[in-house]
Design a protein around this nucleic acid. Structure first.
Lengths: 246, 246
DNA sequence: CCTTCGGTTTGATCTGAGTCAAGGCGCGCG
DNA sequence: CGCGCGCCTTGACTCAGATCAAACCGAAGG
């Protein structure tokens, strides 16, 4: 994603929700018309639940703007975030009738939904869509595997630093700024904890520690300034050439 | 996988390495001939490395027999397994030239490899293959997300129990046995630890504890007997209706 | 203005799993 | 047969992060 996605948007596509070379390079009028016939938009406020795990789900969707999370919850309430959906990311699974995870809007959110049946038919008649979906799913799988390393083997400090580095890089790629950058945290401390497999107290303490040591600066509780990205990346435990996210 | 895969093999396909409805239902002679032209087999002994992360990889492959693992390693040697490849699972990624993970044979292993270039061409000319690959990748993504919950939120005991339950279920599905079952562990204690985000000592201790409490029995160090699967599943922390693996 | 409230910080204490270290067990090989 | 070598187990101790508890901060609302 990130840099990649930016290149993929095709000028003539406007808000075409599946924005990428394969589809966009070919999205002639008739294809777009077909898309228009089966798609609709839904908006959510920050905090709203899009769908609960186990609910019937007769659509697939892509994020137009805002951020959503996928989480799994155990009977006793332990929660683990298993996906972070950014604009242009895809949710839902062709060939499955119910949601496998809770999907929640963490910021105001707009999604572009496609009724599942016609979408599946379209996937068959328009192979590029399936190909693009495969590409995206493989990217997600890579991200999930990077995340598994984080959950299984990294220390609390490395976990937080990794998360901040991801968010910083995401933003830096937009601003193409070098060493320094700054961004808003789109997640509460508790959501970060659910992302990282920690408690919110540990998240808070580690952020305080990074601040104390001058790796980051805070402006309010949600805005982060990073003077020297490399210094932050050193803390992540990753080998220098930032692999993350295929 | 498991039950699903068994149904998918098509009688006329023999050792056709991508065994499933979509391809097999259609694998007429000419398609098979085409496949034969670009595929070749490779065998590995238990413990051998198939490919190192970062190496050039000009093939994709599917596991014919045996078990392989995908692992990620940090600079200081911490290791996390991020994938467990069972027969019929797929490795490699169309459109990427180098391996992203270490792939290791944990048992004797046979893989069926396809040169990447012609495979990619075939994916375009034969949409079913891409569709099937998408299906498999989505299954893997689900498994990865289940795994993330395990890594981030489960206790050591729940982790071990979950792993044993997966292995038991995999075997039980073959034997279609009810309450009781028994199977060989395909992994060393250290590999289990890398799977679960634990140390090998903790794995050993937890297995001993499960044995002491009569949840499992051991015959030698590698063969496990489970008298009452439900008792084991209770220990996993999952909600009763065994969700795991889509 | 004060109150409430969600999100956050910080402190004190506890504990599950890691670390370090010493054997044990089974197997292949000289 | 006995030696060495993987692999596994067990014990003693430590410590990172969880838990429990209190207080802070800023925004919204009366």
């Amino acid at each position: 994603m990130s840099q990649h996605d930016l290149k993929l948007g095709h000028p003539s596509c406007g808000d075409c929700p599946i924005r990428h070379r394969a589809v966009c390079a070919r999205c002639e009028a008739d294809e777009l018309a077909h898309l228009d016939a089966i798609k609709y938009y839904r908006s959510f406020q920050a905090g709203q639940t899009v769908i609960w795990s186990g609910d019937r789900m007769d659509f697939v969707a892509s994020v137009v703007s805002g951020i959503a999370t996928l989480t799994q919850t155990m009977e006793d309430g332990r929660r683990q975030m298993v996906g972070l959906l950014l604009p242009s990311d895809f949710v839902g699974r062709p060939g499955r009738g119910h949601a496998a995870y809770d999907v929640t809007a963490t910021t105001d959110l707009v999604m572009c939904c496609f009724r599942k049946k016609p979408f599946e038919e379209m996937m068959i008649s328009t192979p590029h869509i399936g190909q693009r979906l495969l590409e995206m799913t493989l990217d997600e799988l890579d991200a999930a595997r990077e995340w598994m390393l984080l959950l299984g083997r990294k220390t609390a400090r490395e976990k937080i630093s990794s998360l901040l580095a991801i968010l910083a890089r995401r933003d830096a790629s937009l601003k193409a700024g070098a060493g320094a950058c700054s961004f808003d945290l789109p997640l509460t401390r508790e959501e970060m904890a659910d992302y990282l497999g920690l408690t919110l107290e540990t998240v808070s303490r580690q952020i305080s520690a990074l601040k104390r040591e001058g790796v980051i600066e805070l402006e309010g509780k949600r805005h982060v300034k990073v003077a020297d990205i490399d210094r932050l990346i050193e803390q992540t435990g990753d080998d220098s050439d930032g692999g993350m996210l295929g």
